[in-house]
């Protein structure tokens, strides 16, 4: 991993997605959960944004709101600076044309009745490649797979359940290389991928961003990873953004206690393991 990745400043660029007081409440009465609690944000075109937070902090819910798969209970989401209108089916479809997602759970992301080929072919068709020759299609699919360290020849004619979790995740990322969407919402897209492949895949994703100007909203609980790849970081705790800003500023100079804790919890390989508590416990028995 290179620590010297150049970070651009997007804060004055054109807006992509913004939110004002966005809130999502699940359930009513005693069983009420405020998953997203009055958050404000501005994501710019071409920006690599990371949303970092603990499990249950509302990251996935926020991504569903951004995707338009859920409606916010309160607040407003703006698309390219204007209020987003996805009230009808056709307006939704129009909105979804330039947006793609990698969902958190790869196991439920696939239609188990369709072969892997059809997942990728679908992407080619969506990009208007329906009439390409068979060889060309296979070439495109093989290339997309190679970006994520997969061999298409080994996967063709298989069903999703015949793949490992990591393979499923990588195939979901391969879709992005075929689709090249304008906005990508990636919800822990590499959580099951080994660290070595992860770095290569994320580098490829960054290259794709540089090439196409794609906006990437990257959700993770790993603050180290967020620091490595993102331009901007939003730290989420219990549905709120407690801190946000340029990745360097937030992580090298954290203000919120929550951020500091997240940073201190990153395991450091070269530090000695503190085993004193374990010894104490075993002596007590």
């Amino acid at each position: 991993m290179s620590e010297t990745r150049e970070r651009k400043d997007f804060s004055n660029g054109p807006l992509c997605l913004s939110g004002r007081g966005v809130t999502k409440v699940f359930g009513i009465g005693d069983r009420k959960t405020v998953a997203v609690d009055h958050v404000d944000f501005d994501f710019h075109e071409g920006e690599f944004v990371s949303i970092v937070g603990e499990s249950g902090s509302g990251k996935t819910t926020l991504s569903k709101l951004l995707l338009g798969l859920m409606n916010p209970t309160e607040g407003e989401i703006l698309f390219e600076g204007k209020p987003r209108d996805i009230s009808s089916g056709s307006k939704k479809r129009e909105y979804w044309k330039g947006i793609q997602a990698i969902f958190q759970d790869p196991f439920s992301s696939y239609n188990v009745f369709h072969k892997i080929d059809s997942v990728l072919l679908d992407c080619i068709n969506m990009r208007g490649g329906r009439n390409l020759s068979k060889e060309k299609k296979i070439e495109l699919m093989t290339e997309a797979c190679s970006f994520v360290n997969l061999k298409f020849a080994e996967l063709t004619n298989k069903y999703p359940f015949e793949l490992s979790g990591g393979q499923m995740q990588r195939l979901m990322i391969a879709r992005i290389f075929l689709l090249k969407p304008r906005i990508l919402l990636a919800d822990e897209p590499t959580s099951m991928v080994d660290a070595c492949s992860r770095a290569t895949i994320l580098d490829m994703l960054l290259d794709l961003r540089d090439e196409t100007g794609m906006t990437i909203i990257f959700i993770t609980h790993d603050i180290g990873l967020a620091y490595y790849i993102s331009d901007t970081v939003y730290i989420m705790e219990h549905g709120r953004f407690v801190e946000s800003g340029k990745a360097d500023e937030v992580i090298l100079n954290p203000q919120a206690a929550y951020t500091k804790r997240l940073i201190s919890d990153v395991p450091k390989i070269h530090e000695e393991w503190d085993l004193s508590t374990v010894d104490l416990l075993s002596k007590e028995e």
């Binding site: 798969l69 979804w96 947006i99 969902f103 992301s109």
Partner: peptide, 26 residues
């Protein structure tokens, strides 16, 4: 609300197609 249905929605598939290919087989 399963993600494969969400993915199908994001891919711009029609209501009929989603019901027939992503719901009915299940």
């Amino acid at each position: 609300n399963r993600d494969h249905v969400n993915l199908s929605k994001l891919s711009g598939h029609s209501l009929v197609r989603i019901i027939l290919t992503d719901i009915l087989p299940y």
